[in-house]
Design a protein around this nucleic acid. Structure first.
Length: 462
RNA sequence: CGGGGCGUAGCGCAGCCUGGUAGCGCAUCUGUUUUGGGAACAGAGGGUCGCAAGUUCGAAUCUUGCCGCCCCGACCA
C-alpha cells in the first residue's frame, strides 16, 4: 500500500512537468536509409522513407516510426490549438461505424467501393469510416433540441479509411489517413455562413503556423454535397492537380489574433475577392481578366477542404431544433477537414532541398541537432553533453548525435532529417572555445561560444 | 477501373533471352588502422530466387494460374 502510494504520487508530480522531448541518438530508433527505396518517386515519400519516418505495410497504409510520429503529433497539436481558438470543441468518434446511419442518409449505396465495408461475427454490416457527417449528425440529434444551444462546432482528429483505387506518393494519398474533421450546426443559413467563416479564418492561421502557404480556392463539393466550398491548397510541383490563382493570394499574411465571435466576413471577402480556383471550378474567361503578370498556374496539394451543405444530412436524419416560434427546423451544417497525415508529406514537398528535409520550426521533430564530431574524445563528449543538457533545460527538444559514426555520416544524416539548427562540436573549435551553429534552411554557419549559441537558439525558438 | 512495369540477402541491383542448383555494391558482425562532409584493409554471417502447379534427368531461368507492389490516366482529405 505504501509502495503504491509512493508510486502514484510520483506519477502525479511527473504529469505536472512538461514532457521531456529530448533524445540521445544512441538510445533512439532512427532507421535511416542510405539508398533511395525504388518505390518512392516524389521527394516527400523518398525523404520520409530515408529519414526513417514511416514504413509501408501495404498499398497506402503506413507505420509511423518514431521520427514521423513526432511530426504527425506536432501538426495535430497545432491544428487542435487553432480549432480550439476558433471555438470548435474536441471529441472523438470511432473508426468503425454501423452501416445503419449511412443507410438513413442514403450514402451507404452512394459512396461506392471507396468505402471499406466489413461484417462482424453476427453478420452485421459495419464500415471503416471514410468521414463522419452521418455519425456526428446522429450525435447532435440525440442531445440537442433548442436553437438556444446553437451555434455549435464539434471536431475530432481520427484515422479514416478510403479504399482508393490508386493510393500513391506515400502518405500524400494513403488509404488510411489522419484527418481533423469539424462539423458546424446553426439554425439559419446566415449563421452557418458565420461558422464557415470562422473555420475559413482558423485554417488560414493554422497553415501559416505550420510554416506553409496554403491558398483557399473555390472548389467542387464532391460526394459530400452542398453549395459553398473551398479547398486550401499548397503550391508544389508534385501537386496532383492544376490550380489557378491571383499571385497576390500566395503571399497574403494570415489574420492572426482575431475575435472569433466578431464579424469575420471581411477576412473571407478579402481572400475570395481575387481569383483562385481548382481545375474543376476553373473559369478561363475570369482568369484571363487578371493582369498577365499576376496570373499564376501551378500544381497544388489539397491539405484542407471546407463545405457548407445546409440540411443535406439533418433533413433525412431528422436532426432538428425548435426555433423561437416553437417550430422544428432542420439544422444547417458545414464540415471542415484538414488532412493531418497528408500535411506531413505536403510540408516536405514545400520544404526540402537536395540534401533532405528542411522542417519549419513549428513542426520539426526536434528543435536542434547536436553533433559530437569525436565521440571518443572526453572533452568533446563533455562539451556536447553539457550543451545537450542546457538545450534540454531550455525546452529546445534537442537530438544529440552521440554515436561513434564518422563526421560525414553525422552531417548527412542530420541534413536528411532536417532539424532547423545543427550545433557542431569538435576538437578543433573546442580548443578556441567555440561551437559551430548551422542554420539548416540557409546553410549559414556561425562560430560562437556555447553561451552565444544558446542565446541564438533560445531567441530563434522564442 | 483502363494502360505499362516490377517481385532474386536488410537496401539497391545483375543473372532469365540461350535451363545445369545464385552473384555484385551498400549495410551487418570480428579485428587492425583511421576520424571536420556517407573511410581503408582483412575475415565472417546472411537468400526454400513472391506463391502454387506444370514441362524437364534438372527450373531463378520455360508455361499457366494466383498474390503483392510501383508508375501513367480516370476518381478523391
Amino acid at each position: 500500500m505504501l509502495v503504491y502510494a509512493r508510486f502514484t504520487s510520483r506519477l502525479k508530480s511527473a504529469s505536472l512537468k512538461i514532457r521531456d522531448r529530448s533524445m540521445r541518438l544512441s538510445k533512439y530508433f532512427l532507421p535511416v536509409l542510405k539508398e533511395t527505396p525504388a518505390d518512392a518517386t516524389i521527394a516527400s515519400h523518398r525523404y520520409m522513407l530515408r529519414a526513417g519516418m514511416i514504413k509501408q505495410n501495404s498499398a497506402g497504409i503506413y507505420t509511423w516510426l518514431p521520427l514521423g510520429h513526432r511530426v504527425l503529433k506536432k501538426i495535430e497539436q497545432i491544428v487542435r490549438e487553432e480549432q480550439d481558438k476558433a471555438g470548435a470543441i474536441e471529441m472523438l468518434m470511432p473508426t468503425i461505424q454501423s452501416a445503419d446511419l449511412w443507410k438513413e442518409t442514403g450514402r451507404y449505396d452512394a459512396y461506392g467501393p471507396e468505402m471499406l465495408r466489413i461484417t462482424d461475427r453476427h453478420d452485421r454490416e459495419m464500415l471503416y469510416g471514410p468521414t463522419n457527417e452521418d455519425m456526428i449528425t446522429d450525435v447532435f440529434r440525440s442531445f440537442v433540441r433548442s436553437y438556444k444551444d446553437l451555434p455549435k462546432n464539434l471536431y475530432h482528429i481520427q484515422w479514416k479509411f478510403r479504399d482508393e483505387t490508386r493510393p500513391r506518393f506515400g502518405v500524400m494519398r494513403g488509404r488510411e489517413f489522419m484527418m481533423k474533421d469539424a462539423y458546424s450546426f446553426d439554425l439559419t443559413e446566415e449563421d452557418a455562413v458565420k461558422s464557415y467563416n470562422k473555420m475559413f479564418t482558423a485554417y488560414l492561421n493554422t497553415f501559416a503556423r505550420l510554416g506553409i502557404k496554403a491558398v483557399p480556392m473555390k472548389a467542387d463539393t464532391g460526394p459530400i454535397g452542398g453549395e459553398l466550398s473551398h479547398e486550401f491548397v499548397i503550391l508544389a510541383e508534385s501537386g496532383e492537380s492544376e490550380v489557378f490563382c491571383h499571385r497576390d493570394l500566395v503571399e497574403m499574411a494570415p489574420p492572426g489574433d482575431v475575435d472569433f465571435d466578431g464579424d469575420l466576413s471581411h477576412i473571407f471577402e478579402e481572400r475570395t475577392a481575387l481569383y483562385a480556383a481548382t481545375e474543376e471550378m476553373h473559369d478561363a474567361e475570369e482568369f484571363a481578366k487578371i493582369p498577365a503578370d499576376k496570373q499564376l498556374t501551378a500544381r497544388g496539394i489539397e491539405v484542407g477542404h471546407i463545405f457548407y451543405f445546409g440540411d443535406k444530412y439533418s433533413k433525412p436524419m431528422k436532426a432538428t431544433v425548435m426555433d423561437s416560434d416553437g417550430k422544428p427546423q432542420p439544422v444547417m451544417m458545414g464540415s471542415y477537414g484538414i488532412g493531418v497525415s497528408r500535411l506531413v508529406g505536403g510540408i516536405i514537398e514545400a520544404c526540402h532541398d537536395e540534401n533532405g528535409i528542411v522542417w519549419p520550426k513549428s513542426v520539426a521533430p526536434f528543435g536542434v541537432g547536436i553533433i559530437n564530431l569525436k565521440a571518443n574524445d572526453e572533452d568533446c563528449a563533455a562539451a556536447a553533453s553539457d550543451f545537450y543538457e542546457k538545450c534540454k533545460a531550455a525546452g529546445l527538444d534537442p537530438l544529440y548525435d552521440d554515436s561513434s559514426d564518422r563526421g560525414g555520416v553525422k552531417f548527412s544524416r542530420m541534413d536528411l532529417i532536417g532539424l532547423p539548427y545543427q550545433i557542431i562540436i569538435g576538437p578543433r573549435g573546442l580548443k578556441e572555445g567555440i561551437v559551430e551553429v548551422k542554420d539548416r534552411a540557409t546553410g549559414e554557419r556561425q562560430n560562437l561560444s556555447p553561451d552565444a549559441a544558446m542565446t541564438l537558439l533560445t531567441e530563434a525558438f522564442a
